[in-house]
Design a protein around this nucleic acid. Structure first.
Lengths: 142, 142
DNA sequence: GTATCTGCAAAGGGTTTGCGTTCGA
DNA sequence: TCGAACGCAAACCCTTTGCAGATAC
């Protein structure tokens, strides 16, 4: 079990709540804290928002999940790729497609010319994925 | 007067409060709502947060200013370039340097291959500008 | 004169924190 | 056993809203 080992290595406890949160994060979709709260509580009623937020923060720090700042708030999803990357996120189903390049790769020269030292950056793309677009067309045919 | 005309064209009134907010936005720095609130009230005591937020929203819609979602919250600054662009923002002084390219220009092919239709995107770079870095070095010499 | 805009006060959404209790290792 | 993690409640920050009065045009 990989998760179990990650937790043990860091001296973290694998509680019922943490299992439930990780379970709710399965799948390729990115979800809001509210969606995760509802999903987690469907599986294990009684889990608190504070527990959810504390653990999401922990999982981000641990590198288990990614947090995106979408147009309508934070989104959380499993981190499947260990190297630095960005996402194209579907606004309908939450699916996140990793992008192959980081825009900073191409902007080093321009930023250097400006004398600008980068400490942080964000790049995310939002829209409609192929599946959802096809489904929309089906619906609109009715 | 350019502003006056823009306002007249849209049927908007050029109130004392709006003048003060636009005045506080002068300069190349991007500022938080709180910083603008303080600046505006230094110039004209009594201006309310609701007035500030309502007008910032209005100015964004009108295209007079840009709103960025920085790591520590929203930032507002004059929109000097009418075409679509992104910024490198200094975390110390707020100065925003427009970047010459939009990363989406290079990603069209990849996104098309995914069948992904883009509706929104964000790209911002944060760090330290040349001036502030030089100043930091001075300070650290003491 | 009148629709637009303001200040006020209150509510809203999303997230965080302190504290006493519970539970995993 | 005992410190890490939990639930609860309350606070927090930033932003938005409804309304009655003020003001630009």
């Amino acid at each position: 079990m990989e998760i179990k080992e990650i937790f043990r290595d860091k001296g973290l406890r694998l509680t019922l709540q943490r299992r439930a949160i990780l379970e709710a994060l399965q799948g390729q979709g990115f979800k809001t804290a509210l969606e995760l709260f509802q999903e987690v509580n469907r599986l294990h009623p009684g889990i608190n928002f504070s527990t959810l937020y504390r653990n999401l923060e922990l999982f981000v720090q641990t590198g288990l999940i990614c947090r995106l700042k979408g147009p309508e708030g934070a989104l959380y999803g499993l981190r499947r790729i260990s190297k630095h990357h960005h996402h194209a996120v579907c606004k309908m189903c939450g699916a996140a497609y990793p992008l192959s390049r980081c825009p900073l790769e191409d902007m080093g020269e321009e930023l250097q010319r400006l004398g600008f030292t980068v400490t942080e950056h964000c790049f995310e793309v939002y829209g409609i994925c192929e599946n959802c677009r096809d489904h929309m067309e089906e619906v609109s045919r009715c």
